[in-house]
């Protein structure tokens, strides 16, 4: 809160106008429409629209495909977060030991942040291409038959790897920052008391990284839930047999390709509720981080 402020009445609104206009026209109004649409149902020809109350929502609960997408999304987000964060933590711990080479390693590890998720998907799709790809060949030598266009589990592995690969550099930077903020004196004291590197990691470093890890967990979940649309679209398109059909992808397929407006709108509203919940968690946590 500022003590000194300007007194103009009109000027603040002029300054806010562009932001508020875009927010209203492209964020709030469409979101409200999605909310309204979720209570309506159009007939097959789009001629008649009737108010159906919560029917679109209750239908979702009976819809096997939707429940499948919920399960797929849960598996996908947990795997992406765990894989991306554990690899990043390992790399951050290793960089934290470096003195002269830390900057060089960091440069070599941060650039994938700039690669578009769609391109990341395309690159891994190429590597895992069943006919000419490198990985199916290597896996074939080990007796594993790879074809993600037929095998749902393999398709899931492909999209998880592609999505997590892109996120490693982001997680890495935050873990490095988190490690740097742990006072060296704590670790030195523990070393003098005879604690080895693994003991120190378990009893000092890891607990003190908890705020960073929790923050990254939320961010990675949001990433896996919403920003991975291009990864799916560029690789499996939700297939085979819906094995990688995550919720955001289903909203798009049902709304844009299937033109099932009511159901798509209800799914949008459910997803908005998820984002609201995650944002609240994130901001409450940020409040607490100040005390840490």
């Amino acid at each position: 809160m500022k003590r000194a402020v300007f007194r103009n009445r009109l000027l603040p609104w002029v300054l806010l106008a562009p932001q508020l206009a875009v927010t209203f026209v492209f964020f709030l109004w469409p979101a409200a429409q999605a909310g309204w649409q979720s209570f309506l149902r159009e007939d097959a020809f789009g001629l008649k629209t009737t108010f159906v109350g919560l029917a679109n929502y209750s239908r979702l609960l009976d819809d096997g495909e939707y429940l499948n997408a919920v399960g797929v999304t849960a598996v996908f987000s947990v795997s992406v977060a765990v894989l991306g964060m554990s690899v990043a933590l390992l790399l951050a711990l290793a960089v934290d030991r470096m003195v002269t080479t830390a900057r060089g390693y960091t440069t070599l590890l941060v650039w994938p942040y700039a690669v578009a998720p769609a391109i990341a998907g395309l690159l891994w799709w190429f590597i895992f291409n069943p006919t000419i790809g490198l990985m199916p060949h290597v896996l074939g030598l080990m007796g594993i038959d790879w074809d993600h266009s037929l095998n749902g589990n393999q398709a899931m592995i492909l999209v998880v790897i592609a999505a997590a690969w892109k996120q490693i550099s982001y997680n890495f930077l935050f873990f490095v920052a988190g490690l740097q903020s742990i006072p060296a004196s704590l670790r030195e004291a523990a070393a003098i008391d005879g604690a080895g590197p693994f003991r120190r990691f378990l009893t000092i470093t890891f607990p003190l990284l908890a705020p960073t890890s929790f923050f990254l967990l939320v961010v990675n979940t949001v990433y896996a839930l919403f920003d991975t649309f291009p990864v799916i679209d560029a690789t499996t398109e939700g297939g085979p047999a819906q094995a990688t059909n995550i919720l955001v992808y289903k909203v798009y397929v049902d709304g844009f390709l299937g033109l099932n407006l009511g159901s798509s709108a209800a799914q949008s509203v459910v997803l908005m509720a998820v984002v609201v919940a995650l944002t609240v968690v994130q901001f409450r946590y940020v409040e607490r981080r100040v005390e840490y």
Binding site: L28, Q37, D227, G255, M272
Partner: peptide, 18 residues
Amino acid sequence: CIFITLMLPVEVRILPTF
């Protein structure tokens, strides 16, 4: 109003925004 935009990613409201 500005804060709320954090909670409305494009992917979630594509159809009405389009």
